[in-house]
Amino acid sequence: MKKFSHGNDRYDYSAIVSRPVYDWPEGKRLAVYFALNVEGFEFGRNPGNDFTSMPSAPYHRGYAYRDYGNRVGVWRILREFDKAGFPLAVLANGSVYDVCPEVLDACRRRGDEMVGHGRTNSERQADMDPETERTMLSDVKALFEQHEGKPPGGWLGPFISQSANTPELLKELGWKYMLDWWFDDQPMWFRTANGPILAVPYPSMELNDLPAYINRGASDEEFTRMAIDAFDEQLQESKEYPMVYCLSLHTFMTGQPHRIKQLRQILDHIAAHRDQIWLTTPGAIAEHVESLPPGTVPMP
């Protein structure tokens, strides 16, 4: 009988309960990182929906809503992470270096990891032909090298969008890992025609403030409960095998004044377990996986 094929040849099935068990640094089993989306939008191009409806041209309402995050909201968020002493992975559009460089200056002073997140959040990779996408990726890489002194190790596409060529292009151009594919709670090697690239877990659908608030209509308190409950569950599960917990935040969502108290509750709860977890960044997670003995993490 012919075997069923689901059409995905990027990675093989692997049950988390059947894999080799390994530790994160210092014998920890739960890696925790926070992703902060710092995005720039082009006025007159649809930036996405808001709480009420899909805006219409010239899209000023959605643009202004998001611009608030870089002018006001991000500073509230950075203040809380400074107080907690937590690192951030800053998922930054290249355009932010031109539009509001002061934000990235502050993140750089904190020592946060800068992760490539497109040229602008007004375009999607799924709409690009291979040469357009290659040029975009090269331009973003050059911007990061110019301002940070080194290329970004990680990538998340705007709108978590990929073309059929994205994994190959990322590998070709030197990216070490990507966040676009969330199919596991452990980092997994991902097959490309140019060799494997690491897929680091990123909560594209669940512990991500934008889809939670806008698409699913979660209340502030519900999102806080989700974030804390997921952390508690994964901390317990990590006694059996290593896991990655990530919380994804957007400056214009979590940076609203009524949500900062909620963020503080989450950070305080996680800080109370600081000695049991590895507070880190996705880049450090990728480096650790690369250092493990061959075969520890299944290779496609």
Rank of each mutant, 00 (worst) to 15 (best):
F223N: 00
A218S: 09
R45Y: 15
T132K: 07
R259C: 01
W181N: 06
D180W: 02
V96W: 01
F144L: 09
N37M: 09
A164V: 15
T166K: 03
N37C: 10
Y13P: 04
F190M: 04
R29D: 06
E26Y: 05
S138K: 13
E113A: 11
R191P: 00
G62M: 04
V90W: 00
D229M: 07
E102M: 04
A199E: 03
Q162C: 10
D275G: 09
R61T: 10
P294T: 11
R108N: 00
A227Q: 04
D127H: 10
N215A: 11
P293A: 06
R216Q: 14
T52Q: 13
E80F: 02
G94R: 09
P130L: 14
N165R: 14
D229N: 13
H117F: 10
P257I: 12
R45A: 07
K239I: 11
T251R: 05
V90M: 03
M136P: 00
L169S: 00
I228M: 05
G154R: 01
G195F: 06
E39P: 04
G255D: 05
I270M: 06
G62A: 06
S138Q: 15
M205N: 13
L173H: 13
A126W: 06
E240K: 15
T135V: 11
E123V: 12
A227E: 01
H288P: 06
Y68D: 08
K150I: 09
H60C: 08
P167W: 01
K3T: 10
P25R: 11
P211W: 00
L156M: 12
A89P: 03
L88K: 01
Y177Q: 04
K28T: 14
M128V: 09
Q236D: 15
R10L: 12
G153R: 06
K28D: 04
D220M: 04
N46Y: 08
V32L: 07
G295N: 11
D129I: 12
H250V: 02
R76M: 04
A284M: 12
A164R: 14
A84I: 06
A286N: 05
Q186E: 09
R259W: 05
F34L: 07
S248R: 02
A286G: 10
L263I: 09
N208R: 06
G94M: 07
M136F: 03
L143Y: 00
I197A: 00
A142C: 14
P242A: 11
A142V: 09
L91T: 03
M205Q: 10
V99F: 10
Q234R: 11
G118L: 08
L173W: 10
G69R: 02
M1R: 08
E123Y: 04
F183S: 15
Y13S: 08
S18G: 10
E168L: 07
E233N: 11
T132M: 14
